[in-house]
Amino acid sequence: MKKIAKMVCILVVSLVPTLGHGAFQAIGIIKSVEGEVYLISSSTEIQAVSNMKLISGDNIITGNDGSVGLIFKDDTVVSLGPNSQIEVQDFVFNPAEEKLSFAARLVRGTFSFITGQIAKLAPKKVKLTTPDATLGVRGTKFVVEVK
């Protein structure tokens, strides 16, 4: 069993694109944008457009007519419907050193998810919280509404 887990690790490691090290390592991208969408990164709010890079700590907010799709480095995909906000508190994907973490706050609105490698390798490292509850995620596709 341990051997299998190790093999999976190795497989995943080899899939990880290595970016520069440091605090501002990209953890994913904004893949698609419709309507009003804002990215709050390092306390600066900007209008989001496709292919912007995301870093840990970013907030993504959609307006009345807004929706947005995100792709994270571990293959997790996330989308937000209108009037929604997500805060990506922490995202680390470094299977070689067994450093994995995906913590996000679903502040309000509607969300859909398909989880990726982190949920597969270390489900306990995925922590999604809403004002009402925390979600333990053992995969894979689900939707959440926070009113």
Partner: peptide
């Protein structure tokens, strides 16, 4: 309830 979000969900890499 979730159509607008689901429509924007990217295809996995």
């Amino acid at each position: 309830q979730f159509g607008e979000a689901l429509n924007m969900l990217p295809t996995q890499p």
